[in-house]
Simulated assay, not measured.
Amino acid sequence: MTPSLPLRPELQGLEPYGAPQLDVPVLLNVNENPYAPSDGVVADVARAVAEATRGLNRYPDRDFLDLRRDLATYLARESGVTVAPEGIWAANGSNEVMLHLLQAFGGPGRTALSFAPTYSMYPEYARDTSTAWVTAQRAEDFTLDVDRAVAAVAEHAPSVVLLASPNNPTGTALAPAAGEAVLAAAARVPGGCVVVVDEAYGEFRREGTPSALELLADHPHLAVSRTMSKAFGLAGARLGYLAAAPALVDALRVVRLPYHLSAVTQAVARAALAHSDELMAQVGSLRAERDATVTWLRERGLTVAETDANFVLFGMFDDRHAVWQGLLDRGVLIREVGPDGWLRVSIGTPAEMTAFQDALVEVAGL
């Protein structure tokens, strides 16, 4: 008799998270940066990894203050906001950063709140930490309805509020007034409430769109997360981080696993940060390609959500799966995600976007 596994009831029958990984010529489905690191970046990363390898018999620096200083320096240049290194935290991708937040501030008897549609991993972070998950609805244009958001915070008294800006899958940026309103409502929650603004795509925001980093100084219950996966083109390196008050960061140090950030990961991230100006130069071209894609789609009569990210949500289609499949049949993989009738395309190289456009014209008869 084969013994049964004592799988938690809420996990029974579930499939692991993940977008389709298919071998096709044009991959535009997971919001990757289409540009590989330059030879100069590769060489410096290789040197840094070789040096780190000499000490792999020892555990890595568990508090990685040198990396935190480099990240703080980068944020000051990118956003104009000064954050102390003690106010920086990093982990293996922003996914692990989010998990640390839910481990520290969520848990049984507590609630995490967000606003749909939004990133599909958020409820999984809640589930994995036995945190109750609730959502309120965004406005029709996918912006945050301030009155509805404030009312939801008051109704549910969450210990964590998750706000993505730009929002995934819609690309919608968080308006400063909406962020301030949610922070004020969270400050009134009995027992406290942490507001997390997930800026995984923050570097792609349009000129004049502020970062939530500008709100940090006045809000010790705010955390702003970033990643090196998107703008830096380092999705394979797995380095995410956040900025917050040092007291909030100290809470995350309690729940992180010992030596969770390897010496190799730290070396790769620091070497890449030394090339931040070069890597950020690609962001401008991706922004321009995104805006051109928005214009092209709208000129063909499609509805396109306003976007400050490196992707575009567009529709509406009576049978979006048929359109998705038709693109795939022509070697172009995009994402079937978001509200019914919508599709999302990541911004690739000019050649990749031309292939996407040509395929969409054929499939949708535009």
Rank of each mutant, 00 (worst) to 15 (best):
M1E: 04
L5E: 08
L7G: 00
P20Y: 01
Q21G: 02
P25A: 11
L28C: 00
Y35G: 03
Y35V: 15
A36M: 10
P37L: 11
V45L: 11
A48P: 03
E51G: 10
T53H: 06
R54M: 08
N57L: 12
R58I: 03
Y59I: 00
R62Q: 05
D63M: 02
D66W: 03
R68S: 05
D70M: 03
A72F: 02
A72I: 14
Y74S: 14
R77N: 11
E78H: 11
V81A: 12
T82K: 07
N92M: 11
G93N: 05
S94P: 00
E96Q: 10
V97M: 06
A104P: 03
G107K: 09
T111N: 10
F115R: 04
A116G: 03
Y125I: 00
S130C: 06
T131R: 02
W133R: 00
V134N: 01
V134A: 12
T135N: 07
E140L: 15
D141W: 04
F142R: 04
T143P: 00
L144Q: 02
R148Q: 15
V153W: 03
A157N: 09
P158Y: 11
V160A: 08
A164I: 10
S165G: 08
N167T: 11
N168W: 09
G171Y: 15
A173S: 13
A175H: 13
P176K: 05
G179V: 12
A181E: 02
A187M: 00
R188Q: 10
V195G: 08
V195Q: 07
D198K: 10
E203G: 08
F204H: 14
T209L: 13
P210Q: 09
D218E: 13
P220N: 03
H221C: 14
H221D: 15
A223T: 07
R226L: 08
A231G: 09
A237L: 12
A237F: 07
A243L: 02
L248I: 03
V249G: 07
V249C: 07
R253M: 13
R253F: 05
R256N: 07
P258T: 04
Y259T: 02
V264N: 13
L273H: 07
L273I: 14
L273C: 12
S276Q: 09
M280T: 06
V283W: 00
S285Q: 09
L286H: 05
E289K: 09
D291M: 14
A292S: 13
R298N: 05
L302V: 12
V304P: 08
A309C: 05
N310Y: 00
N310C: 15
V312H: 01
L313Q: 15
L313N: 13
G315L: 11
D319M: 14
R320A: 14
L333I: 09
G338C: 12
G338K: 07
L343K: 15
R344S: 13
V345E: 08
T354C: 09
T354S: 12
A355N: 01
D358F: 00
A359S: 15
V361Y: 01
